[in-house]
């Protein structure tokens, strides 16, 4: 006897039975929910809708502004680093706390650069691996705490 026969018979049986099932009736609340959501959307100002629904001009302006801000951020970062260097080197620094702070930032930067140059690549990979493990550990810890302290009391209600 062909071993496939029972499988095929079962497939036909399930197929026939499932296809005969009537559609499930949608909840009565569905229509009102959809209409409510449509009304809510219609009341929203264009800038509160999703990006795809913004006017073309607004979308273009948004992209231009984002590009400009990104460029400004890069320029600002470079200027800040240059400024810290110049503050560090300036003898005319009068504010008492700025100089030690500048020294600290520059020293930290130099130390990081030195470590990156001096450390063998293996150390770098080990460091990245440790960071990943710690991240996973903290993520798991967070999940366990959430389950224990938040979900279990909810389920116990």
């Amino acid at each position: 006897m062909d071993a496939k026969e029972p499988d095929e018979a079962l497939e036909h049986l399930v197929n026939r039975t499932l296809r005969e099932l009537p559609l499930r009736r949608a909840p009565l609340t569905l229509e009102s929910r959809v209409l409510g959501a449509l009304e809510h959307r219609a009341e929203l100002s264009w800038w509160r809708r999703s990006f795809a629904h913004w006017p073309l001009v607004a979308r273009a302006a948004f992209l231009v502004i984002c590009g400009a801000l990104a460029k400004l951020a890069f320029l600002g970062g470079a200027t800040a680093v240059a400024g810290v260097h110049s503050l560090h080197e300036s003898a005319a620094l009068s504010v008492s706390w700025v100089r030690p702070a500048a020294v600290l930032v520059v020293s930290a930067w130099n130390l990081a650069a030195l470590l990156m140059r001096a450390a063998p690549p293996t150390w770098l990979y080990v460091g990245i691996a440790i960071c990943a493990v710690l991240y996973a550990f903290l993520f798991g810890l967070g999940a366990a705490v959430y389950r224990t302290l938040y979900l279990q009391p909810l389920n116990g209600r």
């Binding site: 559609l23 499930r24 009736r25 949608a26 909840p27 609340t29 569905l30 929910r33 959501a37 449509l38």
Partner: peptide, 28 residues
């Protein structure tokens, strides 16, 4: 079409509440 949409979502998710959310999104 609402029964068809709801049935499809409900049978796939096995959860009526989620199916209603999905059906709402489909009609939107």
């Amino acid at each position: 079409y609402q029964d068809m949409v709801f049935s499809t979502a409900s049978r796939l998710t096995g959860n009526d509440r989620q199916a209603e959310d999905i059906a709402q999104e489909v009609f939107l």
